[in-house]
Design a protein around this nucleic acid. Structure first.
Length: 234
DNA sequence: TCGTGATCATCT
DNA sequence: AGATGATCACGA
């Protein structure tokens, strides 16, 4: 049997950006991710034939999508995990001296049904079942191409972490479900923030006695929580 | 248009 | 400086 995952990465100059085949197991995924350790964004982009964004403002999400290609994530996963067959979600995380710099977007909130959702079947619960964290160093030190992949961590939340997540989720979704506006200051390890193309976007959400238009929101993990996850593994 | 990939930029 | 709210790119 041919193991395509062990084939050398293609050279630059390919007609279109390449994507590696999906990994067949979590083990294989972990091995691939380990292979990125120490490589720069520029090296990996060249190997896959990806062009680097020219302005930093235009580069949002680039490293995440590059990592998806390098590891063989399913581009059509939609709101399923990035590796649907493995139940694994991929998150690149910008680091500064071993500390996460930013919060981590997890998923959007279906505002209209915020009053009837349950934790166990929630989008957040599904997406955080197993996460491959891929640190990327040099966020404020190096140009995009010089930033370097760190040591990946395949993580499943502990019972305690799951309880923390659930408690925050229930508080936050409960507030939305009751028609209350929620800002980023609420939640111990999770937060709700606006998530839309711009500040004018509105969607239908529960309101006192009915429904009203509100800003679409997304769940984010606070950087302080992500720091504990990554620190536990070191 | 929505959801996912995040980072940017302003305010405190 | 850190955190919150705003914004940019892409694919289905």
């Amino acid at each position: 049997m041919t193991d395509r995952s062990q084939m050398p990465l293609p050279l630059a100059g390919a007609p279109s950006p390449l994507r590696r085949p999906p990994p067949q197991s979590r083990k294989e995924l972990a091995v691939r991710a380990a292979g990125l350790h120490g490589r720069t964004v520029g090296e990996v982009a060249t190997a896959l034939g990806c062009e680097l964004p020219t302005e930093s403002r235009r580069g949002k999400g680039f490293i995440g999508q590059l990592a998806e290609r390098a590891l063989g994530a399913d581009p059509a996963a939609g709101d399923r995990p990035d590796f649907p067959d493995l139940g694994v979600e991929l998150k690149t995380i910008p680091m500064r001296r071993d500390i996460p710099v930013e919060s981590t977007f997890c998923c959007s909130v279906t505002m209209a049904t915020a009053d009837t959702q349950l934790w166990e079947s929630s989008r957040l619960r599904q997406r955080l079942g197993c996460v491959l964290w891929l640190p990327v160093d040099g966020v404020d030190v190096a140009a995009l191409a010089e930033r370097r992949f760190g040591r990946a961590l395949l993580w499943e939340p502990s019972d305690r972490q799951l309880a923390q997540l659930r408690a925050d989720w229930e508080d936050l979704i409960g507030a939305l479900g009751s028609g209350r506006a929620v800002g980023g200051h609420e939640g111990q390890i999770l937060q709700l923030r606006p998530k839309a193309a711009d500040a004018s976007v509105r969607t239908l959400a529960p309101a006192d006695g009915g429904a009203a238009l509100a800003r679409p929101m997304g769940f984010y993990l606070r950087a302080s929580f992500t720091a504990t996850i990554l620190a536990d593994a070191r």
